[in-house]
Write a protein that binds this DNA or RNA. Structure first.
Length: 540
DNA sequence: CGTCTTTGACCTGCGC
DNA sequence: GCGCAGGTCAAAGACG
């Protein structure tokens, strides 16, 4: 996919390169050309015939050059001119061989002047961005130092508490001790895709060593421990079990936390708040409501059904699935049809995958992670802060699509519901007229199964931009292989989202892009029947 | 035969 | 303490 235009440009450049190989400087030019052609290819993918974009892109190249070697500005500019002649001059040479050198020189000079002017502008902009970056870096560093200080204080408290517990009784002490180690781990679980993958955030690794105070097992190890503990201990139920299973026994956490808070941390209200917030984090759920006749929406993961229950107030049973892509993946999901409208499928996700994921699953993972992080960032400040206006993501989503993304603080655990169903009954007319996302949802051919990818990307990039939370999101969406057209669509969607401050508008653009991108290839999303066909593991 | 689904039993927490 | 509801386990059966 990528290579086609690159090779096009590359072939031309190589042909020219063969003619001018004696000059060393032109080797630099060739390198730049390779990079340039690839970049330009990306731009041309978005708008092939847009000359302005091409020009802007050329300016970008020169801007980067100027960053690297400001003294060689003139040469960099010449590079751009060479590129111009490389692309267009070849055609001219075949048509107008008799062009005078003066004309070419004049044109080159004009272009040169224009480009230098643009270069100046870009340098100014570059400087401004650098200032902003340095400012953000400073803020980040100061926040990190504060975090480190808080962690140290907490660690000291824990160590002093351990001494106290040693005298009180070992069993009870172990429980409390694990409570203190458990919460941060879950805290991290909601971070970069459980951190066991290679996309672990650099910051979190340092923090984790501090949090676990000692030689903490990797999350993968801990996951294995969980699984082993589960199988070995069975129902004997150790604290490890309650720690490990973020999904199960949801009521344990509040109880433990409340008791531990009351028993141990009364001296410090901050710790109470923190444990409550962290407990909240553990139970953060992302619920996706989508209209689908299929038993499950296709999210790219392999799931194994481990239970089914009749939920109160709903004639439709609730199915419980766990991720089977890795042996100890903690991610689980519930699937249930809406009682009022059985065509609506409610899928609730919890946890983060601790293994590499296929692109489609990455999208969903980023959805749940970003949405959960959105929840958590709001709940960090206070329990009532789920809708805290300081939550940038919430602010980004809710003002324009309050009926689409709702956050429930009244639930036993915070749940963000992404309502991807349009309302044919017109319960809320404003929803469809004012909400760009809903407009796209209503479009014929729209498939809710694609939406998690869109929302995930949108949430992810929105949060990447805002960086409002201390949680580090997984970099998964960035590593989606470029060979998939879905990933292309996602990339385009990402770019659209990243470039648009208005989340809903960006989301709409993203959906457009994905719909366009997937309409020709993504037959597996046709009315969600792909669940049984394209993804053979999603049985039911 | 291995894997997956089904389904009844069991566990846990919460409210009364 | 009891009942209810949510969640999980594990034996049994189905399926390829």
């Amino acid at each position: 996919m990528f290579r086609f235009p690159v090779s096009l440009g590359g072939s031309r450049d190589e042909a020219r390169h063969d003619q001018i190989t004696p000059l060393d400087e032109h080797r630099v030019v060739v390198d730049e050309v390779d990079f340039f052609s690839e970049k330009r290819d990306r731009v041309s993918r978005e708008d092939i015939n847009d000359d302005e974009d091409e020009e802007a892109n050329k300016v970008h190249v020169k801007m980067e050059n100027s960053r690297i070697e400001e003294s060689d500005r003139s040469r960099d500019v010449n590079i751009g001119l060479n590129l111009l002649t490389a692309n267009t001059g070849s055609d001219e040479s075949t048509v107008d061989d008799g062009l005078s050198m003066d004309m070419e020189d004049k044109r080159a000079k004009i272009e040169n002047a224009q480009l230098q002017e643009e270069l100046k502008k870009m340098k100014i902009e570059n400087q401004r961005l650098r200032d902003m970056l340095s400012q953000a870096t400073n803020n980040f560093n100061s926040l990190q130092m504060q975090l480190v200080a808080v962690m140290r204080q907490q660690e000291q408290r824990n160590s002093s508490q351990e001494h106290f517990l040693a005298t009180e009784g070992k069993a009870e002490g172990r429980k409390r001790q694990e409570l203190h180690t458990m919460v941060p781990r879950q805290f991290m679980d909601l971070g970069p895709s459980s951190g066991a993958t290679e996309h672990e955030a650099e910051v979190s690794s340092e923090e984790r060593t501090m949090i676990h105070s000692g030689s903490p097992p990797s999350l993968l190890e801990s996951s294995n421990l969980r699984e082993n503990g589960k199988r070995l201990l069975g129902r004997e139920e150790s604290p490890e079990e309650s720690e490990s299973n973020a999904w199960g026994n949801p009521n344990k956490v509040p109880k433990h936390n409340s008791s531990s808070s009351n028993n141990n941390n009364n001296a410090n209200g901050n710790v109470i708040d923190q444990s409550a917030a962290e407990a909240t984090m553990r139970k953060a759920r992302v619920s996706v409501r989508a209209r689908s006749e299929a038993p499950m929406i296709s999210d790219g993961c392999q799931w194994r059904k481990y239970g089914q229950k009749m939920a109160k107030g709903n004639p439709c049973p609730r199915a419980y699935y766990r991720c089977t892509m890795a042996g100890a993946c903690p991610v689980r999901k519930q699937v249930q049809r809406c009682a009022e409208d059985r065509s609506i499928l409610i899928t609730t996700y919890e946890g983060n995958h601790n293994h590499p994921l296929p692109p489609a699953a990455m999208a969903m993972a980023s959805t749940t992670t970003a949405a959960a992080s959105m929840l958590l960032s709001g709940s960090m400040s206070s329990q009532d802060g789920l809708m805290n206006p300081t939550n940038l993501l919430a602010r980004a989503i809710l003002p324009c699509s309050s009926s689409m993304a709702t956050i429930s603080a009244s639930a036993p655990f915070p749940t963000i519901t992404l309502d991807l169903t349009n309302s044919p009954n017109g319960n809320n007319p404003n929803m469809t007229t004012n909400n760009p996302l809903m407009q796209f949802v209503q479009r014929p051919g729209f498939n809710p199964a694609v939406l998690p990818q869109v929302v995930g990307q949108a949430l992810y990039y929105n949060q990447q931009q805002s960086k409002f939370s201390g949680l580090q999101l997984p970099a998964q969406p960035l590593q989606i292989p470029a060979t998939s057209s879905v990933s292309e669509s996602v990339s385009a969607a990402s770019a659209a989202i990243a470039s648009d401050p208005n989340f809903a508008a960006a989301l709409a653009a993203a959906i457009t892009s994905i719909m366009n991108g997937s309409s020709h290839q993504n037959n597996n999303t046709n009315n969600n029947n792909n669940v049984a066909t394209s993804n053979g593991d999603n049985r039911q």
